[in-house]
Design a protein around this nucleic acid. Structure first.
Length: 963
DNA sequence: GCAAGGTC
């Protein structure tokens, strides 16, 4: 018995040791294949797999090392973007508003239904982790996806340590290097993507609705059921096709004449006339007559020189798309799909790259050696090694993220187009690291009565790269042997008539080249935009050539004709925008400024278009060969006049809350823009006549909480003015009770989701004070373990102390977002918080705010070992019972400890699966401090003095009731 | 019923 008791007694500390001392990281990649391969590399093939909520995104577990310490690793993935911008529900209906209002309508960023399962997996897995490592692709979109993952995870665990792994290929060297050089996600890059997403949504929706709603009515016979979309990429793509077609349509052939001369001995040597061609027949005839009078040709000179055909540059995405489209006849969309798969399987490097220079550290020799045993190109790879090793030709472009596309692993088990694409990548790689082809060119200059002619011959000496690069050819051309001073009579000397030809229609390769040149779309989306304009019937395909349809032609002509300075179908608009995005990424331009400027720019164009719709009608009528119906210029829709200015942040979901008019047209209510996902609403009583959102915010509740101007009938606050400016953020219980405002609890983790009504979401890992303004201030958390000092500091919260105590102990500073020591102040205003202490920015520069966590009410109960199990006590010093979450949501089924006293609860709360480690304690009291305010719970302003719920006395030591 | 960008 004695032995058993002892054993059981030891168990508790062991559990505590495990959860507190071994770090556990959640690793998240951009796609499942990447997660699988990275996990396989990091675990050296020993990871175990289990299912997530999403069948496509598995979970891999293994032991690993981060910052030189052993840790538990969990690896999973998303499937690209986890979130998407949408208009709030009011604006989703096409009839709900004039499309013009879509330039200002509130938008929210939310997780679409299809991705809820992936989100749920992240939410579940992060609960047992202390760190998060982002393994999304290292490009602009990948950075933004990283912040989406960070948001989901920090919504659950605000104090999470977040790191960014930067890698360019999924090879052991690159992945381990990334893990050993973990950094932080780049908020500027992510912000640029947010701006792009928002602008694309607004412009796309506004112009698409305008075009579709109008032309369906104006041309019902031709367009009644057509979706006539506009997009910032699809329209310029259409513009290219139209422009080329117009060039052909406008082309007028011109006849020309030239003199043909050749000389046959053993071979026939063709000489080209130096004048090439003449557009005047009589002149050409006169010259020919003159030559025929004395047709003897004299060789004036023979020049011979070495000639090279250059090996290709290291392979970038666009080159791959174009060449494969041309040579293998696999369209760009399929090519990228295949290349992506080869990449995630580890056969080739990242296929979306702008780089055509090999980095110095890339071991080209071993990559060549990997290919030596192949039946087809193996001998060529061996030849490279025996002829001095790889000597790559270098280009000039680098995206600073990925190397040129190259094989990373030998494969002989691929089939079909995967095999063909892989073979192309390998052959291109071997070609570009070998040698140029060598030849010998002879140029012969001849003269007949003063007219000059030239013949060229070519002998191929060494094919070199051409031996492996079967997609190119270099043909020799034999000519007769001539020496200077030789004379001969031409075998043929005659005039030939011909005419100039129009340019050719565009092929897919031509279109991609134009899109690339003008920055339309990304490497990954070129093919999608081409597909879109096909599916809208803006263009059609004749063999391999694109031709515009009447609708596409009419639309582009219409926009060009209304005198817009820069047409919507021209690439300049998008290119300018892309340039701004680049500046945001580099930190040279503010995302919010760009967002405002670009929206204003497109809005102005939209207004021009809307005003001149009848001109476009006429152009379209001409192309469609249809008579336009007479419809009103203005769409007969409007939004009921509500003000969409945000009043405050929704305590439940973090989206903006606004004032709306009840359906009766009289009353007002406060509602969340996250509807229908979030149904947080407060209906004002009937005595509230009007509510306006002012520009001022509540000093106590913070900048997101605007003061509201209420007009009453009559004023329920006796003696107060009418109208009266009030805050409903919760700082004054009396106001909220009188106005029936109950916005519910803060989120369980005290994190107000930082999504703004527009533009970017504010993830907490930002490095700039501006970008954290909408997030909850954080306690400055020191690392939980003294032996964790090798860890990078947590991305947001930093401490000036280096110990391993939880932050905000009496002897440590609290640092605001400006990195300055925050000042401790006391609430003087009458209300439930009077006397409470809080930290704020000493200079009032940032919006940092934190209730003083030293309040005894915020102390966290610790597990107490008993003979049987680990008991948890609440702040009333009573054994906390275990309860289970029944409410639908991510926490359903989760167990927690709480206070047993229903009437006089101390509000103690602790998840059962998150033991009260020091780190969690830190988190918990931060949460309680804020929750107490949101719920109007009575807390004591003086540190350490709290009324005991058991005996009613104040100031028990460590909150333990001695009675 | 809208975009473009990820990805399955």
């Amino acid at each position: 018995m004695q032995f058993l008791r002892k054993t059981r007694y030891i168990r508790a500390p062991l559990i505590r040791f495990y959860t507190n001392n071994i770090m556990k990281y959640l690793n998240v990649a951009e796609k499942n294949d990447a997660a699988k391969n990275i996990a396989s590399i990091l675990s050296r093939g020993r990871s175990t797999r289990r299912e997530g909520f999403s069948q496509y995104n598995k979970i891999y577990e293994f032991d690993g090392q981060v910052f030189g310490e052993n840790c538990k690793m969990v690896m999973t993935s998303v499937s690209g973007h986890l979130m998407n911008y949408e208009f709030v529900s009011t604006f989703r209906n096409w009839q709900s508003c004039n499309p013009l209002t879509l330039f200002e309508a509130p938008v929210i960023k939310r997780c679409p239904q299809d991705f809820e399962k992936i989100k749920k997996t992240l939410e579940r897995e992060i609960r047992s982790c202390q760190g998060l490592i982002i393994w999304t692709d290292c490009d602009r979109e990948g950075e933004n996806i990283g912040f989406e993952i960070i948001k989901v995870c920090t919504d659950i665990k605000p104090q999470l340590r977040v790191y960014r792994a930067k890698f360019s290929e999924i090879t052991a060297a690159s992945v381990f290097r990334a893990l050993n050089t973990l950094g932080q996600a780049n908020k500027n890059v992510s912000d640029a993507v947010d701006v792009r997403q928002e602008l694309d949504l607004r412009t796309g929706a506004a112009f698409t609705r305008l075009q579709t709603l109008r032309y369906q009515q104006v041309f019902p016979a031709k367009l009644a059921n057509k979706l006539i979309s506009y997009g910032s990429c699809q329209f310029p793509t259409l513009g290219f096709v139209v422009e080329r077609y117009q060039a052909i349509e406008d082309f007028i052939a011109e006849p020309f004449w030239k003199i043909k001369m050749n000389h046959t001995l053993k071979l026939t040597t063709e000489f080209l006339w130096k004048r090439e061609r003449l557009f005047d027949k009589n002149s050409c005839e006169a010259i020919l007559d003159h030559l025929k009078e004395n047709p003897l040709a004299t060789i004036e000179s023979v020049e011979s020189k070495a000639k090279s055909k250059w090996r290709p540059l290291p392979l970038d995405t666009v080159e791959m798309e174009k060449t494969i489209s041309k040579k293998l006849r696999i369209n760009a969309k399929d090519t990228m799909k295949i290349a992506e798969k080869l990449y995630t399987q580890g056969y080739i490097s990242y296929p979306r790259t702008e780089t055509n220079i090999f980095p110095k550290e890339l071991n080209l020799t071993s990559l060549v050696e990997q290919q030596q045993n192949d039946n087809q190109w193996g001998p060529f790879a061996r030849r490279i090694m025996t002829e001095g090793g790889p000597t790559p030709r270098q280009g000039r472009k680098s995206d600073q993220a990925h190397p040129p596309i190259h094989p990373t692993k030998y494969a002989d088990n691929l089939q079909g187009n995967e095999k063909r694409v892989y073979e192309y990548v390998v052959r291109h790689f071997l070609a570009c690291v070998h040698k140029d082809a060598q030849g010998f060119e002879t140029v012969v200059h001849a003269d007949i009565s003063g007219e000059k002619f030239t013949a060229k011959g070519l002998i191929i000496l060494e094919k070199n790269y051409l031996d492996v690069y079967v997609y190119e050819h270099w043909n020799g051309k034999e000519i007769n042997n001539y020496e200077r001073g030789d004379t001969f009579n031409p075998t043929t000397l005659e005039m030939v008539e011909s005419q100039t030809g129009p340019p050719k229609l565009l092929t897919e390769a031509d279109l991609i080249a134009l899109m690339e040149k003008h920055g339309i779309g990304t490497d990954a989306t070129h093919a999608d935009h081409i597909d879109t304009i096909k599916s809208r019937e803006y263009v059609g395909l004749h063999d391999i050539y694109f031709v515009p349809g009447n609708l596409g032609m009419g639309l582009v002509e219409g926009y060009n004709n209304i005198g817009l300075e820069i047409s919507l179908a021209k690439p300049t608009l998008r290119a300018d925008f892309e340039n701004d995005l680049k500046l945001i990424c580099e930190g040279h331009k503010d995302a919010e400024v760009v967002r405002r400027e670009q929206i204003a720019r497109y809005k102005a164009m939209f207004q021009t278009v809307a005003e001149k719709m009848r001109l476009i009608d006429a152009t379209l009528a001409n192309r469609l060969d249809d008579r336009p119906e007479n419809v009103p210029d203005e769409p007969n829709v409007s939004v009921g006049g509500d003000d969409f200015r945000p009043a405050l942040k929704c305590p439940r979901c973090g989206n903006d809350m606004i004032i709306k008019t009840k359906k009766d047209g009289v009353g007002k209510y406060l509602t969340c823009l996250g509807y229908p996902d979030c149904k947080n609403t407060s209906w004002f009583p009937n005595f509230v006549k009007n509510v306006e959102v002012t520009d001022q915010h509540c000093q106590e509740c913070g900048p997101d909480c605007k003061l509201l101007k209420f007009t009453f009938r009559p004023n329920p606050f006796l003696g107060e003015p009418n109208p009266n400016v009030l805050c409903v953020g919760g700082c004054d219980e009396n106001v909220n009770e009188t106005l029936d405002v109950n916005l519910g609890n803060r989120r369980a983790n005290n994190e107000v989701a930082p999504t703004r009504n527009v533009a970017s979401q504010r993830a907490p890992q930002t490095q700039t004070p501006r970008a954290v303004q909408a997030t909850t201030p954080r306690v400055i958390a020191a690392p939980p373990q003294a032996n964790n000092q090798n860890h990078l500091p947590p991305p947001v919260a930093r401490s000036t102390n280096s110990g391993n105590r939880p932050a905000a102990n009496a002897d440590e500073d609290v640092v605001c977002q400006c990195d300055q020591t925050a000042v401790l102040l006391t609430v003087r205003k009458d209300g439930p918080n009077k006397g409470k202490q809080f930290y704020k920015c000493a200079q009032s520069v940032c919006n940092f705010f934190l209730w003083d966590p030293h309040d005894a009410a915020n102390a966290v109960a610790r597990p107490v070992a008993t003979t049987d199990t680990v008991d948890v006590q609440c702040r009333c010093n009573e054994k906390a019972p275990i309860r289970t979450v029944n409410k639908e949501g991510p926490n359903k089924g989760r167990q927690f400890y709480c206070c047993p006293n229903m009437q006089n609860s101390c509000n103690f709360f602790q998840w059962i699966d998150e033991p009260a480690s020091e780190e969690n304690e830190n988190l918990n009291w931060s949460f309680r401090g804020k929750t107490s305010r949101g719920q109007g719970r009575k807390t004591q302003g003086t540190r350490g003095k709290r009324k005991c719920s058991k005996c009613g006395q104040e100031g028990h030591t460590k909150n333990r009731c001695p009675n």
